[in-house]
Amino acid sequence: MNALAADRKQWARDHAAALRNLYGSLDGEGLVKVMTQLEFRGRIALVSSFGAESAVLLHLVAKVDRTIPVIFLDTDKLFGETLRYRDRLTKLLGLTDVRTIEPDPVAVAERDPDGVLWRDDPNACCRLRKVEPLNRALSGFDAWITGRKRFQTKERAELPNLESANGLVKVNPLISWDAEALDAYRIAYDLPAHPLVEDGYLSIGCMPCTDRVAPGGEYRDGRWAGSEKKECGIHLEADGSGI
């Protein structure tokens, strides 16, 4: 790691800690408002998968400022339902700056010419199609908003509302929300559900690596089912640490 990158990571760690001291009790719309309008105005983006629970966070952000950049990673392996859901929510919520980010076609041709890297090396596929494109897309921002919640996995159970990774502050407005609260909010504001949820998909990623969750199963059992893999990597530090 060069000195500039090390300094940037230290800045993000220190800044996230200072912000937790100020706003550690905030979540939801209140946290979104403070982070986007006061602390990082013009320097923050929302990263959204337009997945099973995305409508709630997108609606919270749209209520505060519909012009906040929304970064959507199109891995070229997504469900068609997700792409159509993105278009529907973008129009419904009046989002004005949804940026669809794709993997580098040259890198794809070199490292996944047959399109089956997801089967042979899912970690490498996620780096190619998610981690690297997102890192490029976040260049120039100081912070980004995520949709992670503590109930989703045991690894996320202790998430703070503000943290840092790879030189950026990460804002988690929904960490304390459970599935019932999310569904109640969606119904209250008449937000459409992702069309695959009714078919048993609780956490929705790329089509080849996402399966239905059996009744009584854990929230993310359908992601990389049958393997030890739990995260795509966008929430990990460059050294693989984090969640």
Results as ranks from 00 to 15, higher is better:
243 I>D: 08
108 V>D: 07
199 D>R: 12
30 G>L: 00
34 V>D: 07
110 E>F: 07
160 P>S: 04
41 R>F: 01
144 W>Y: 14
23 Y>C: 02
156 R>W: 08
34 V>M: 07
210 T>L: 04
119 R>N: 02
207 M>C: 03
171 V>A: 11
146 T>N: 13
131 V>I: 13
1 M>V: 13
72 F>Y: 15
15 H>V: 04
113 P>H: 09
166 N>Q: 13
150 R>H: 08
204 I>Q: 05
121 D>F: 08
179 A>L: 08
41 R>L: 01
5 A>W: 09
115 G>Y: 02
131 V>T: 08
212 R>K: 08
166 N>Y: 10
193 A>V: 05
94 G>T: 09
131 V>K: 10
55 A>G: 06
109 A>F: 05
77 K>Q: 15
208 P>V: 05
182 L>N: 10
51 G>Q: 13
103 P>E: 11
22 L>Y: 01
76 D>T: 12
147 G>W: 09
14 D>H: 08
79 F>K: 14
5 A>L: 15
197 V>S: 07
75 T>I: 10
64 V>I: 12
125 C>N: 09
17 A>P: 00
34 V>P: 01
5 A>C: 12
137 A>T: 00
123 N>F: 00
192 P>M: 02
95 L>C: 10
153 T>G: 10
49 S>H: 09
141 F>A: 02
25 S>W: 12
154 K>R: 14
237 E>T: 11
158 E>Y: 12
129 R>G: 03
215 P>Q: 08
172 N>S: 13
99 R>Y: 03
69 P>I: 10
144 W>C: 02
15 H>I: 02
154 K>W: 10
65 D>T: 13
171 V>I: 15
172 N>T: 11
65 D>W: 07
176 S>H: 10
120 D>H: 14
167 G>V: 10
83 L>P: 03
150 R>A: 04
93 L>S: 09
7 D>Q: 13
78 L>D: 11
118 W>Q: 03
200 G>S: 03
64 V>E: 03
166 N>A: 14
190 D>G: 09
144 W>K: 08
131 V>D: 13
152 Q>E: 15
111 R>N: 14
36 T>P: 10
4 L>S: 09
111 R>S: 06
144 W>S: 08
169 V>R: 10
185 Y>I: 04
123 N>Q: 13
100 T>N: 05
77 K>P: 00
42 G>R: 13
194 H>P: 04
143 A>Y: 03
240 G>A: 10
237 E>H: 15
17 A>Y: 01
4 L>D: 08
96 T>S: 14
158 E>P: 00
122 P>V: 13
188 A>I: 01
116 V>W: 00
168 L>W: 12
147 G>D: 06
152 Q>A: 12
111 R>T: 04
102 E>H: 14
54 S>H: 02
137 A>S: 03
48 S>E: 07
153 T>W: 06
99 R>D: 07
119 R>H: 09
198 E>I: 05
26 L>M: 12
30 G>Y: 01
175 I>F: 07
3 A>S: 15
150 R>N: 09
171 V>T: 08
138 L>M: 05
55 A>M: 07
167 G>N: 08
185 Y>L: 00
66 R>W: 05
227 S>R: 14
66 R>A: 14
135 N>Y: 04
109 A>S: 13
218 E>A: 06
172 N>Q: 14
1 M>A: 15
201 Y>Q: 04
177 W>K: 00
224 W>C: 00
